[in-house]
Design a protein around this nucleic acid. Sequence first.
DNA 1: GGGATATGCAACTCGTATGTTGCATTTATG
DNA 2: CATAAATGCAACATACGAGTTGCATATCCC
Lengths: 129, 129
Amino acid sequence: MIASVAATSRDAGDVFVALADPTRRKMIEQLSVLGPVTITQLTEVFPISRQAVTKHLDTLSDAGLVDTERRGRERIVTFRPEPLHEAIDWVAAIEARWDRRLAALAQFLAAEANDRQPSTEPTQEGISS
Amino acid sequence: MIASVAATSRDAGDVFVALADPTRRKMIEQLSVLGPVTITQLTEVFPISRQAVTKHLDTLSDAGLVDTERRGRERIVTFRPEPLHEAIDWVAAIEARWDRRLAALAQFLAAEANDRQPSTEPTQEGISS
DNA sequence: GGGATATGCAACTCGTATGTTGCATTTATG
DNA sequence: CATAAATGCAACATACGAGTTGCATATCCC
């Protein structure tokens, strides 16, 4: 099951890059409320040129966060929330590792307090150089 | 309740900026597994100079994702997962808005299908220009 | 004390992200 | 059909991020 990886081969990092810019975050906020809008309509909301908006949309598109569709002479931009899960998954994995490490450390300390022969050492308490 | 805002006044955007760089994400992954390490120890893991590592740590520190503490001639770097929640909260808020909008749209369409007098319109179906 | 180790500070290069402006192209419309 | 509207394409300016190197400072250890 290779599924869930788009054809244009995005990267989880692309989502973070897309979210790193405040203007793009505001764009996503707008799109999540307004629903599908035109590039020109979206430009009216921001104090930057239409071309700047288009570039931001390109970045959001690379991250899979927006989907565009030509309709006559205008282009409809639609928000796509799915890639946000990739970001959340990464964050969740980090927190899981951290919690696991803390648990292992707590267990190690408890074992050391009871006994003087710790059988199960935590993965690593810092690097032993 | 102004609480939970650090003294150095971070921004939720700082977290996204910190996570936007692949090297910094790998640093966080390392820190979440290794636990507190020295700058020099952390540098040994990456193919970049110590100064480059320090700059990344500064960015992570600005985001509140790491905490450093001087110990003798060395500096101990510790991972701080708390700010990650700010990022998750932002994402969750966006998804909530989107879902709310979809629900309102579905309700609107259902009402229009049954009756010809939609009483409760969705917030907005695109911009009516 | 003196050398080795760990870090801090500053200047510099290089690439690219952000934004602009000008012009061309396509489509809708009176 | 002629014009306005919406967008695409390309060149340009500017700022900042990522990384490097050189040197200074502080601390540990023999």
